[in-house]
């Protein structure tokens, strides 16, 4: 997704002279064209994320629009106080770009994973989270983020290429990927494509409704989503993030407030490292039962029981 991000940035920032890009010494084999294009507006701030985030805040205070790029945990965790005090207290339009959200950095290990990122960052009242699911989403997201008036976190992952049988809907906060019955599945992040593909090819009958959520916090539930919940009141929320502070918890509160009643409410979220074994992103997704097979097995079992 970082290559698609770079391509979208090249198109967008050419016309946005107030935008400036800071990287924490990352971007090899991906961001070179952006570096060349932006010239002085591309700043390698070195391996010093706390400074980089505060520098971005200073630049934003003087009407620039900084993008701050690093591996996701090095941004949201290492520099959290700088995000809180320097960016969010002042509601500055800084875009924090965290590459490798969730288990994205795979066998690089736990220090490089970000399975708590949006839970932590959503503690900041005016920061919004953007979680693209497909490379194509960045064509819409980057121009949108280049004009925001609030702090933002862009969680990049590794999205699968889907064949022409999968018509990816135009980017929006909520998208319906699959029309179905009995179950309503809500997914977030770059694993959505594989799960969508798995569900469609699973032979499940009926297929569940499949929804995709790409922006947090949840401002409002779309009426079509509520209708699906009313007609298919068995909800499964899947996220590459720990349960605490995650989408499942957020949604539970909203559903209670709005009075939408469910028969079943299941969540699949990241558990961390239960086996103390490490591997690829797919390894961790499987171990956490976030892979397509585990999801389909859950649905098969429960769809037969419902």
């Amino acid at each position: 997704m970082k290559v698609s991000f770079c391509q979208s940035m090249l198109k967008t920032l050419e016309h946005e002279s107030s935008n400036v890009f800071l990287t924490g010494d990352l971007g090899f084999m991906a961001l070179e064209p952006l570096k060349e294009k932006l010239g002085k507006r591309f700043i390698n701030a070195g391996v010093a994320e706390q400074n980089m985030v505060s520098v971005a805040a200073g630049m934003a205070r003087n009407k620039m629009r900084p993008w701050v790029y690093s591996i996701a945990p090095f941004i949201f965790a290492r520099a959290f106080e700088q995000i809180r005090n320097d960016i969010c207290f002042h509601q500055l339009p800084v875009v924090l770009v965290g590459n490798g959200g969730g288990y994205g950095y795979g066998v690089m290990g736990a220090t490089h994973h970000a399975i708590e990122d949006y839970g932590v960052l959503l503690s900041q009242r005016n920061l919004k989270i953007y979680i693209p699911a497909f490379d194509e989403d960045l064509n819409a997201l980057v121009p949108l983020l280049s004009k925001i008036d609030h702090p933002a976190y862009l969680r990049l992952g590794l999205a699968p290429k889907l064949d022409q049988n999968f018509a990816i809907p135009q980017y929006s906060a909520w998208r319906k990927l699959e029309e179905g019955k009995k179950w309503t599945v809500l997914i977030s992040g770059s694993m959505a494509g594989n799960i969508w593909k798995g569900i469609r090819q699973s032979g499940l009958n009926p297929l569940p409704n499949v929804w995709l959520l790409s922006e947090l916090p949840i401002a409002q539930l779309p009426s079509d989503f509520i209708t699906d919940l009313q007609n298919s009141p068995n909800l499964l929320v899947i996220e590459e993030h720990i349960a605490h502070g995650g989408i499942g918890q957020m949604l539970a509160t909203i559903l209670l407030k709005t009075g939408v009643l469910l028969n079943q409410f299941e969540t699949r979220s990241a558990l961390g490292y239960p086996s103390s074994r490490y591997g690829s992103q797919q390894f961790h997704l499987k171990e956490n039962q976030l892979d397509p097979d585990s999801i389909i097995n859950l649905l098969k079992k429960d769809i037969l029981e419902v």
């Binding site: 505060s54 520098v55 805040a57 200073g58 205070r61 620039m64 106080e81 005090n85």
Partner: peptide, 26 residues
């Protein structure tokens, strides 16, 4: 311009202000 009090933020903030002045030719 900024809330301060947690030490170790100010110089980075000032550097950001100075950097933007340079980029914007201010």
């Amino acid at each position: 311009l900024f809330a301060t009090g947690s030490l170790g933020h100010g110089l980075s903030l000032a550097a950001g202000l100075a950097m933007s002045k340079k980029l914007l030719n201010q």
